[in-house]
Simulated assay, not measured.
Amino acid sequence: MAAAVHRPVESASGRECAGLARNLFGNVRLDFGPAEEQKSRMTSAMLGACRLTQLAADRHVVFGEHATAGPGDPDAIKLLVQTEGKASLAQGGLHTPVSADALVIYDHSRPYILTNSTPVRQLLLQLPRHVLPHADVERLTRPFIAHAGHDGMCRILLSLMESTIREIDHLDEARRSSVGQTMINLVCTMIGAGPRLVKTVANPLDLLLQRIKNFIDSELARPDLSVAMIARRMGCSVRYVYRAFEVECLTPSDYIWDLRLQKAAARLHDAGGYAGEISGIAFSLGFSSSAHFSRVFRHRYGVSPSQWRKTRLP
């Protein structure tokens, strides 16, 4: 089955907004009144490793108690700019007021509730966790807050986000990626990363590749493990996942199947030879059937799994 590919720009209005929000942000729940939901409008686009979203909506509450409950949910840090309206973010035992022109950075893997008590207009930037210095991410047990009226970097970032969302349909992929990297650097500077650390994350593909490999290794038993799932978990586009693997001269799918076969060969080497063990190894590594496993194993190693095992039994 072909992997799903995210469209460059996604949009929704009315009742469709809640579904798009869950698709983009993970296991979140938006609680609207019946009339308020119809007034919602959402536009979202990938900017290389980042995702920028604009939301205009009436009063509502966002429940993020289990925003990253599954392996396919984005592993990202959220940045919220409230350009109109009032809201309050509850996280880590702290209730933080969010007002116009305020910027809030928070770790959405930690439970939170965002209460929008008035009609709001918001810009949300998702940054994959790996692009920010680990020490800064660890400090986000509570939200980081900045105000455009007092912080020059905040004003620059706010202006860039607003102009980008206005011009998003006129930017090609390379320009979007460049703008996204600029936003990453601005956020790193704002939350305290020194010049050396900002330089380290300027080209995040190596870090992304390692995080993808770790994720694949932990989820290898899932038959539905796909490039689309990886991209969603990493909080980036499918195309960006492919870019991370360019240095490997493999596609992400080829890497997954190659790793499965390597692990299968190693486990067969240590197998005890009892009935059903080969099938058990196949299913534990995400193969959908014993026949499929035998076919691809023979293609890779030139012998069947049972022959491979027998040649290595004492």
Rank of each mutant, 00 (worst) to 15 (best):
A174K: 13
V104S: 02
K199P: 02
A102R: 10
V179P: 01
I156L: 14
I168K: 00
R139W: 03
S177E: 14
M153F: 10
D136S: 15
F144D: 04
E173K: 07
Q181D: 04
D172P: 02
H170F: 14
Q181A: 10
M183G: 00
V198M: 04
S109I: 01
G149L: 08
M153E: 13
N116L: 06
T118W: 00
L197H: 13
Y106L: 11
L207H: 15
M183Y: 00
L158N: 09
H130A: 04
T115E: 13
V104I: 15
K199T: 12
T96A: 03
T141V: 13
S117H: 07
A148H: 04
R121Q: 14
A174G: 01
L197Q: 15
Q210N: 10
L124N: 01
R175H: 14
G180R: 06
L123S: 10
A202Y: 10
Q210M: 11
R155Q: 13
P128G: 11
L171Y: 06
T164L: 06
V98K: 08
V201D: 02
T96L: 15
V120P: 00
H150V: 04
L127M: 05
A135W: 08
D206Q: 06
H147V: 03
P128M: 04
R196I: 12
N203K: 12
P204I: 06
I113V: 15
